[in-house]
Simulated scan of single mutants.
Amino acid sequence: MPRPLGQFEPRRRAVGRRHHHQVEDVLATGPRANLIDAFTEAGQADGVRYGIPVVSSAGAFFCNKSVFARAGITAAPTTWDEVKQDAELIRAKVSGVTPYALPLGPEEARARA
Rank of each mutant, 00 (worst) to 15 (best):
A60D: 11
P2T: 06
V54F: 11
S66W: 04
T40V: 09
A111L: 13
P10C: 11
K65S: 06
E24F: 11
T78Y: 04
E88M: 13
L5E: 00
T98P: 15
V94K: 04
F62M: 02
A87K: 01
F61Y: 12
V94I: 00
A60V: 10
G16R: 01
V94Q: 03
K93W: 08
F8Y: 04
L35Q: 03
T74G: 09
L5M: 02
G72C: 00
V23L: 05
G43R: 08
F39P: 06
T74K: 14
R11A: 06
I73R: 09
I90M: 05
Q44V: 10
G30P: 12
E82G: 04
A76M: 10
V55N: 08
P99R: 10
R11M: 15
F62T: 01
F61S: 12
G59L: 07
P106S: 15
I52M: 03
R110A: 05
P77D: 07
Q44Y: 11
A113N: 06
G47A: 07
A42E: 05
C63A: 13
G96N: 02
T79Y: 00
Q44S: 10
R32N: 06
D46C: 13
P53I: 06
Q7K: 14
E41C: 14
R13V: 05
A28W: 05
L5G: 00
V67Y: 09
N64V: 03
A69G: 06
G96H: 09
E82A: 03
V55K: 12
A58G: 14
T74C: 02
A28F: 02
R110K: 08
R11W: 06
A14K: 00
R91S: 08
E9M: 10
G105N: 06
P2R: 01
V48E: 04
V15M: 06
N64L: 10
L102Y: 11
A28P: 04
H20L: 13
I90D: 01
V23M: 02
